[in-house]
Amino acid sequence: MTTRATTAKTAAEKSLDVTQNAVQEATAKVETFVADAQKSATEQFEKFSKGLEGFTTFSQDNVDAFVKSSEIAAKAAEGIGTEISAFSKKSFEDGVAAAQDFASAKTLTELFEKQTSYAQSTFEGFVSQATKMNEIYVAAAKDITAPIGARVTAATDAMKSFSL
């Protein structure tokens, strides 16, 4: 072979080697890129799945808190109803007893004294009952809002963790 032919063959081989190396490097880079993209996609999907599970759990806890608050409210309403009923019954019985006592009055002065005494005891009983009912309402409101308040605190904590 002539030197020219050998030189052309060597140049062709070098060109072929350079092309093959470039193809191999490009293939390796593409494979690395695809592997990294797949790994990143998998990680992001796992994070999304965990976030979705956390959201589902959080939502279920919210529903549970509302159910618990509703149960507490129902029990409180029942207790309040019982208390009102008992006070009404006592007030009625006291009224009947007072009417009988009024009927036994011998003089007008005695009747006025009995009415005054009854009015005073009725007013004191009403004030006492109003105070008691206020305490019941405050306690019930505190108990009813406790589960929801806990969920608000959990939501606030969750939002703080997202912003960090």
Rank of each mutant, 00 (worst) to 15 (best):
F92W: 05
S91V: 01
V63D: 06
A98E: 01
A86W: 02
K50L: 14
G81W: 02
T107F: 08
D94K: 01
Q120D: 10
L52V: 04
K75S: 07
K50T: 14
T109N: 09
V30A: 14
S59R: 14
E43F: 07
A37V: 08
A74N: 04
A98H: 04
S117E: 10
Q60S: 12
T42R: 15
N21T: 12
E113N: 08
A41W: 02
Q129S: 05
A37T: 11
E124R: 10
S70D: 12
S91N: 02
S128P: 06
E43W: 06
I80D: 02
L108G: 08
F58Y: 06
K90L: 01
A22Y: 05
S85T: 07
T109M: 05
T107Y: 10
T56S: 15
V34L: 07
F112H: 02
A65L: 03
L111N: 10
E71M: 12
Q60I: 10
V63F: 11
G54T: 04
F102K: 04
A105H: 04
V23A: 13
K75E: 10
A77Y: 09
N21L: 11
V18N: 11
A37F: 09
S49A: 15
F112G: 00
K106S: 11
L108N: 07
Q24G: 10
D17L: 08
S121I: 11
E53T: 11
D36Q: 07
E83T: 02
Q120G: 01
T32K: 15
A119K: 04
D17T: 06
F48C: 08
F66E: 06
D36H: 03
I84D: 02
F126C: 03
E110M: 01
A74C: 00
A22L: 07
A86E: 06
V67M: 13
D64G: 03
N62R: 03
A41R: 01
L16C: 10
A35I: 05
A35Q: 08
F48K: 09
F126M: 02
G81Q: 00
F66P: 05
F48S: 13
F48W: 07
V127K: 14
A41V: 01
S91H: 00
V67H: 12
D17Q: 08
S104E: 12
Q60T: 11
F45V: 15
T19N: 12
E46S: 15
F123Q: 13
E93C: 03
V18Y: 10
A103Q: 09
F102L: 09
K106D: 09
N21I: 07
Q20P: 05
K39M: 11
E110L: 04
F55Y: 15
E78H: 10
F123Y: 13
E53C: 07
E78V: 09
Q24H: 13
T19H: 13
A77Q: 11
F92T: 00
T82P: 03
Q100Y: 08
Y118A: 09
T19E: 13
T107D: 12
D61M: 09
D17C: 05
A103R: 07
